[in-house]
Computed example of a mutant assay.
Amino acid sequence: MIPTAQVDFIIAQNLLNFWASTGVDMDKVWEILEIDESLPFPRRIPADRISAVYRYVSNELDDPMVPYDIGSYMANQSFPLQRAVISSENLRTGFDVVLKNIYYNTGSFSFEKIEETDEKVVLETRAPILGAGSDFQVCSGVVFLARLFANSLGKTRCDDDLTMIIPAPMVPADKDVSERIAIRVVPGENFLLEISKDAWLRKAETADPARFLTAMRELRKQYARFEEDVRLYQEICEILETSLLQRNVSQDYVASQLGISVRNLQRRLRPLGTTYQQLLDDARQKLAIKLIAEGDQPLYEIAYLVGYTEPSAFYKAFRRWTGMTPGEFRQTGTDD
């Protein structure tokens, strides 16, 4: 679990509502997300789990229009990010808000302005920086941005203000995608959004300075909580790495190093969508890979150092982490 790649729980809940409406097996979705429906919903969900659900939904539905529908659906929801963009003075200001806030809200998309001329601005939507995002998921991201900007322009939008460029395999030839989402779509190579320079600078129909300031305050509060969670995660990881080498990885010890109780530690981990055992497993994986890559220490000694009394249990865990045995992993480093 990497806290810098997570999806805010409000966004996750709305994605769940959409997925449920498609008729996919929601029991499988909860299983992929590793969430117990009977427990309080965590404050954030690891983005790699959300990406895994996107892949599952894509395979189950086999409907090329689903990513367009997801993007449109999410753009029409009322979250602080959407409210800030909609109430921005213009699309340029709205995009600044997206750049500063999209990743810690979704952990799923990276937007970048790759061209600006007197005639147009071109924005690119890319796969997650961390984790494995599918074209299906990235397509929903560019649709989300396009529809959000279309909502902002409102009745002032002209036909040539917005153009989405989507890789050809993602544009079904037998369906009128442009009509479905009310934005021109043309096949290309990357996920791009072209915006006319006039639309980029034009005052948005929905501009509302007071509402914009309120939404930005909400976003700043969200970011403060996010930073607090990241600091906690990083501190626990540092303690665990030292504790593994000292062979003392009990929750009591780690909690004492943080100056809190075990119960408080468990409570503070819950919003991160993880558990102490998951973090310990992550720490063991990180240390094992580091020790194998950096030296020629016998594998049985490394197994002991990361907390396994039986080498066979370590080998099994390492294969689960990397898809290779420790010996195979070391050999790949030697080959390089």
Rank of each mutant, 00 (worst) to 15 (best):
I2E: 10
T4W: 13
A5W: 11
V7N: 14
D8V: 01
I10T: 13
L15C: 05
L16E: 05
N17F: 07
A20R: 08
S21W: 10
V24C: 06
D25G: 01
D25N: 14
V29P: 15
D36C: 05
L39C: 09
I45D: 07
R49Y: 01
S51Q: 06
V53S: 11
Y54F: 15
V57F: 13
E60G: 00
E60V: 10
L61S: 11
V66W: 08
P67Q: 00
P67M: 03
G71Q: 09
M74Y: 14
A75K: 08
N76I: 02
Q77V: 10
I86V: 12
T93Q: 11
T93V: 07
D96V: 07
V98F: 11
Y103G: 14
G107L: 03
S108E: 04
S110I: 13
S110V: 15
I114Y: 10
I114M: 05
T117F: 15
K120P: 05
V122S: 12
T125G: 15
A127D: 06
A127V: 12
G131Y: 14
D135F: 10
S140W: 04
S140H: 08
R147K: 14
L148W: 08
G154I: 12
G154N: 09
G154V: 12
K155Q: 06
D160G: 05
D160T: 13
D161H: 04
P169H: 06
V171A: 12
A173P: 09
D174I: 04
D176L: 07
E179I: 03
I181M: 10
G188Q: 06
G188T: 11
L192H: 10
D198A: 15
W200M: 05
L201D: 08
R202G: 04
D208V: 00
P209L: 02
R211K: 14
L213W: 00
T214N: 06
M216Q: 07
R217G: 12
R220W: 09
Q222S: 09
Y223M: 00
A224C: 07
R225C: 02
E228Q: 15
E228M: 11
Q234A: 10
E235M: 12
E241D: 10
T242I: 08
L245Y: 05
Y253C: 00
Y253G: 00
G259A: 04
V262H: 09
N264A: 12
L265D: 11
L265I: 02
L269C: 10
L269T: 14
L272N: 09
G273V: 02
Q277Y: 14
D281K: 11
Q285P: 01
L287G: 03
A293L: 06
A293V: 05
E294H: 11
D296H: 13
Q297G: 01
V306S: 08
G307H: 07
P311I: 13
P311C: 09
A313P: 00
F314E: 00
K316W: 01
M324I: 02
T325C: 05
P326S: 05
T332E: 03
G333I: 06
T334R: 13
